[in-house]
Amino acid sequence: MRILVTGAAGFIGSHLSTRLLERGDEVLGYDNVNDYYDPTLKEARLARLQAHEGFRFVRAALEDREAMDAAFRDFKPDRVVNLAAQAGVRYSLENPQAYIDSNVVGFVNILEACRHHAVEHLVYASSSSVYGANVKLPFSVEDNVDHPVSLYAATKKSNELMAHTYSHLFGLPTTGLRFFTVYGPWGRPDMALFLFTRNILAGKPIDVFNHGHHRRDFTYIDDIVEGIVRTLDHVPRADPDYDFAHATPAASAAPYRLYNIGSNRPIELMRYIELIEENLGRKAERRLLPLQPGDVPESHADVQALQSDVGYAPETPVEEGIRRFVAWYRDYYGA
């Protein structure tokens, strides 16, 4: 197939693009390669992709409607995976406009382009952040998510609502994936695993928020990519018999679906840190701090729907995932 992947220079996007290219798909990567974090890491990911004959690349922002339209017009994608977004919970407190530009205006541009270019299926990144102040665990796609605690989360919830509207009005098949704390080689430098590894090797203290009482559903990148690919190949269909008297946020009469994609095996942050220490052969100096604004103390994905529909089964234990990340980090940075 011809697949357009936005955010192709990003962590998940680069891994997904590699997997699609390796199975024989043509991929058009679309990314503005911004400086939210080190652009040289993004360029290194792109260099690996550009070694593949079936890869092309457009350097542009989601909110650039003309560039978006030109990419769709020239490439004529069969399917689209939208992973580009302004990421990060805490940064949304500092620069909210960036989230509206990329995650709201940019997503409308994606939806419009998919609509007018007869795209067969749009898969897009949502986030576990949408669960916000929810306390029932594990988090289920059947749950109400009307209490976000960050603007980032609110923009992701808006994406789900906007996608449903296009599925309903125009018959555009859309699938939203709520990612749970993705980690692994080539990961994002603003995420805990990267920050902890860098500081421990440098002999600097690590900031441990919520005094280390976090529990997170850490999900290895290969398991995430497997879930995306299976979902991309599973196009949702309209359901004229859908019972709105028993409606849930996860499905509709329209060709629309929502799934959690996580490991379904949350662990305590302190245990996560211990595993990093074991792989580095060094102890961390821990600076215990209170819970940050916009953050949640625990996440746990109920992935039963994804298992039932596409056979998703995360396989990578966190012990193995951290080992692979540390090996990559030492090799890439010569640490």
Rank of each mutant, 00 (worst) to 15 (best):
Phe170Gly: 04
Pro138Asp: 11
Val135Cys: 11
Leu161Ala: 05
Leu161Ser: 05
Lys157Pro: 13
Ile228Glu: 02
Asp222Ala: 07
Ala163Arg: 03
Arg215Asn: 14
Asp233Thr: 00
Leu195Glu: 15
Val229Thr: 06
Gly203Asp: 01
Asp217Met: 01
Ile221Glu: 09
Leu169His: 10
Phe209Lys: 08
Gly176Glu: 07
His168Asp: 11
Val141Ala: 11
Asn159Gln: 14
Arg198Tyr: 14
Ile200Phe: 06
Leu137Asp: 05
Phe209Ser: 13
Asp223Glu: 00
Phe196Gly: 05
Asp143Tyr: 04
Asp233Glu: 12
Ser167Asn: 01
Gly187Leu: 00
Trp186Lys: 13
Asn210Glu: 04
His168Thr: 10
Ile221Thr: 03
Val130Thr: 05
Ile228His: 01
His164Trp: 12
Pro185Ser: 02
Leu137Gly: 09
Ser129Val: 08
Phe139Gln: 12
Phe139Pro: 10
Val135Asp: 14
Leu232Met: 04
His213Tyr: 14
Asn144Arg: 15
Ala133Ser: 10
His168Tyr: 13
Arg198Met: 14
Gly227Tyr: 07
Ser129Cys: 02
Ile206Lys: 07
Leu177Glu: 04
Thr175Ile: 06
Ile200Gly: 02
Ile224Thr: 04
Arg230Leu: 06
Val145Ser: 14
Glu142Tyr: 13
His213Val: 15
Leu122Lys: 04
Leu151His: 11
Pro148Gly: 05
Leu193Ser: 11
Gly184Phe: 00
Lys156Cys: 09
Gly132Asn: 05
Phe218Tyr: 10
Asp146Glu: 14
Leu151Tyr: 15
Tyr166Trp: 00
Asn159Ser: 06
Leu151Ile: 09
Gly132Leu: 00
Arg198His: 15
Pro205Gly: 08
Val135Tyr: 13
Leu193Cys: 14
Phe209Glu: 12
Leu195Trp: 06
Gly184Trp: 07
Lys204Met: 11
Pro205Gln: 08
Ala153Cys: 12
Pro138Leu: 11
Tyr166His: 04
Leu232His: 08
Glu160Asn: 00
Tyr220Lys: 04
Pro138Trp: 13
Asp233Arg: 09
Val225Ala: 01
Asp223Val: 05
Ala153Arg: 12
Val135His: 15
Ile221Trp: 12
Phe194Cys: 07
Phe209Met: 07
Tyr152His: 08
Asp207Phe: 15
Asn159Ala: 06
Tyr220Pro: 05
Val145Cys: 14
Tyr183Pro: 05
Ile224Gln: 12
Asp207Tyr: 12
Ala192Cys: 07
Ser129Met: 03
Lys136Gln: 13
Pro148Phe: 04
His164Met: 14
Gly132Arg: 05
Gly176Cys: 02
Ala192Asn: 06
Asn210His: 06
Asp190Arg: 07
Leu137Arg: 11
Pro189Met: 10
Arg215Glu: 15
Phe194Glu: 09
Asn134Trp: 08
Phe139His: 11
Tyr220Gln: 02
Thr197Val: 05
Ala202Lys: 06
Val123Arg: 01
Thr219Lys: 10
Leu169Phe: 07
Asp190Ala: 08
Asn134Ile: 15
Gly187Phe: 02
Gly212Ala: 01
Ala154Gln: 10
Phe196Ala: 14
Leu122Tyr: 02
Asp143Ala: 13
Asp207Glu: 14
